[in-house]
């Protein structure tokens, strides 16, 4: 089978370690049956892989599937073909961002988080919606307020992380990595 160059399928196979295993997908559905987010996904993993094989790239990259993936690896440990499904989800996020095709807030969230890390070397607590919402969706944060107050009064919420000492070194490493990785 020849693959369309630059297609989603081809990129997974050539760019991702062990990505070629996707070719062996049996469409057995173990992944979908194991996925805690499946009910909220446009296409659950098995269905998404069928679309990838069928070359429906736009549908694939506009799906919310990989943004709703919580990286739990349940699918990966249960896949009879040892397909690195979770890593494929990561890779699809990357592809969707690259092509400018994404439909959810999630990319913003990832971006905010990464911005924090690149600025401070540390992050606010992942999973703490309050920090994210207070900074980016002040209106949404009304809903978050009681939880945020509870966390604050227990000394568990900070809006900004501590900065590491050698930020210059970390930035040099990340810049270099981006340069090679691009």
């Amino acid at each position: 089978m020849t693959l369309e160059p630059n297609s989603v399928y081809e990129k997974i196979i050539t760019e991702l370690p062990d990505g070629e295993k996707l070719k062996s997908c049996l469409q057995c559905g173990n992944c979908t049956g194991s996925c805690p987010s499946a009910t909220d996904m446009d296409y659950a993993p098995r269905g998404l892989f069928a679309l990838i094989a069928a070359g429906q790239d736009e549908k694939v990259l506009r799906a919310n599937t990989f943004w709703y993936c919580v990286s739990c690896y349940q699918c990966t440990v249960r896949c009879p073909q040892e397909i690195p499904i979770t890593d494929i989800m990561y890779h699809l996020k990357h592809q969707a961002i690259e092509k400018g095709l994404y439909t959810t807030d999630a990319k913003d969230f990832s971006g905010t988080f990464i911005g924090m890390v690149e600025h401070f070397g540390r992050s606010f607590e992942l999973g703490l919606a309050a920090g994210f919402h207070l900074l980016h969706h002040p209106l949404e944060s009304v809903k978050m307020a009681p939880m945020a107050l509870g966390m604050m009064s227990r000394g568990r919420l900070k809006l900004l992380p501590k900065r590491i000492k050698n930020m210059g070194q970390l930035r040099a490493i990340l810049d270099k990595a981006k340069e090679i990785g691009a």
Binding site: V70, M89, Y90, H94, V117, I164, A177, G181
Partner: peptide, 25 residues
């Protein structure tokens, strides 16, 4: 001394090489 964030699940999703470099530091 002077450890940095591991990137959680976010960093890997957007860019693989910087994510690995971040952890590797």
């Amino acid at each position: 001394d002077d450890w940095n964030c591991c990137g959680a699940t976010e960093y890997f999703s957007v860019n693989q090489l910087p994510a690995y470099a971040l952890v590797a530091r």
